[in-house]
Amino acid sequence: MTKIAFVSDVAYPWVKGGMESIQYLEMKNLSEKNDVYCFCLQFEKMKKEFDKEGIHYITVAKASVKDLYTSKGSRSIKLAMKFARALPRAIKDYNFDFIYANTFPYLHLKYVKSYCRSHNCILALDVAEVWDLKRWKGYLGTLKGTAAYRYAKNAIHGADYYVANSSVTASQLNSVGIKPNKIKILSPVLDLKIRVKKSKRDTSVVYSGRLIKEKRLDLWIDAVAKAHSLNPNIKGIIIGSGPEETHIRDLASSYDFIKMRKPYATKLWLYNELRRSMCFLNMSEREGLSITTIESAFLETPPLLPDYTPIPDEVKEISIVKSLNSIPEAIVDIASGKINYKLDKDKLKKFDITTINPLFERLIRKRKA
């Protein structure tokens, strides 16, 4: 049995986000045939070491979910440093065959690479996005952003393989010097065996995700409000939490037809919300993949995207894409049935969670050969 370690400062369901939910599905699926460990921070309601759903969790240092982000909305470097410093002590006495490390927030990668060299262990990096200098400066400011860009660009090199979540991310990796033969595209976001009861559709436009500036929920609220002015039956639901929550609540409070809800307790709860909604609207200006867009398509809830979306082509092809100005009218047309969403289910097979086992098996065989 192959011994696999997932290394990430955050873990689902203690931290609820797209990347975390994919990591959870990957670990759960791989644990059916392998010995799977997860090294992460110890968040509220987590024991120091425990087993859950076939996964052995080892937490390396205490942390609070509320401290993940700074008041400016960026990830906390203090927690990233805390994780990087505590990881060596927690993992050094284990012997793994394969380490799958989340690239972000980069500070832990130096030790992970050192561990893999000394233990003759395969290292694959899980890459959701590769930021350019402009993106880093916008995130942290000119001085800190420039330093972070240089550090990240250097830290990402040196792994055996890079698992990109989309064609866009694969292209970004190639642009910073990662050889194409080391890059594998994998988007295992769906359990195609899951069954959600069909329920009567309401007239809600839904969004679920982290509440950060890049998700452009100001534009989301504006689009739903304009659609409501054309069809008063249209409502809005925003599901999530994050550093922009207070600001978004203030914007939404002007409209009694837009409601806000805390993050989902379970994936099934979210799926039921998506399934009963009329459409899923994603106005984000920064996405490596967009898991909830794919999940909405799987649930036959039309995903609606503006044409400026950075979402990769493999997700656009299962979505409805319209110009920014025509989004409100598109919402109304979906509500009236004028836009009839039809999906070729074969296009979802590439997102099946079961694709992770064959990939890992190929990578391990290739290394042993």
Rank of each mutant, 00 (worst) to 15 (best):
A86E: 02
I194M: 14
K72T: 11
N231H: 02
V65W: 01
A128S: 10
S204I: 05
L270P: 03
Y271S: 10
V168H: 09
K213I: 01
G145I: 09
A86R: 01
F83H: 04
S296E: 01
L25E: 12
K153E: 08
R117D: 10
F50G: 08
A90R: 11
M283P: 00
D313A: 15
D93T: 12
C40L: 01
L324P: 01
V112Y: 01
K113L: 05
G158E: 02
I258L: 03
S199L: 08
K198H: 13
W220Y: 13
G288I: 02
M81N: 15
T355W: 00
I91C: 04
A90D: 06
K200Q: 09
R85C: 12
K349R: 14
I353A: 02
Y161F: 15
G138S: 08
A170N: 05
E26V: 15
K48D: 00
A5T: 02
I234D: 07
I294C: 04
D202I: 09
S336H: 09
A170L: 06
D313F: 14
M278H: 05
T103P: 00
I178R: 03
F98M: 09
N282A: 11
I183V: 13
D256L: 00
D35G: 06
S204K: 15
M283L: 02
I291Y: 06
S64L: 09
L30E: 00
T2M: 14
E329A: 15
V321T: 12
P180V: 15
I239D: 03
L219G: 02
G18Q: 07
I77K: 15
L143T: 12
T301S: 07
K62V: 09
F257S: 03
V332N: 05
S319D: 08
F83T: 08
I353R: 04
R362S: 15
K48S: 09
K3C: 11
D51S: 15
A124K: 04
F98V: 11
R135F: 03
N95G: 14
V205Y: 02
V65P: 00
L41F: 09
N154D: 09
R367P: 04
Y100G: 01
E295V: 05
M19Q: 13
A84V: 04
L217E: 04
E53G: 05
L230R: 15
D218T: 07
K72S: 12
Y308P: 00
G236D: 06
L211I: 14
P180I: 14
H56A: 11
N233Y: 10
L192E: 00
P105T: 11
A252S: 12
S208K: 04
P88I: 07
K368V: 06
L281P: 02
N34S: 12
L123T: 08
T59C: 11
K113V: 09
E300S: 15
A265I: 14
L25G: 14
L251I: 14
P243H: 10
P358A: 07
S336I: 01
H247M: 10
L363K: 10
S64C: 07
A63S: 10
L140I: 02
R261D: 03
F298M: 13
G138L: 07
A227R: 06
N357D: 08
E295I: 10
S277V: 09
D218I: 05
I178M: 00
S71N: 11
P232I: 05
R275N: 10
K345T: 13
A61W: 05
I58G: 02
A159P: 01
A63H: 03
G54Y: 08
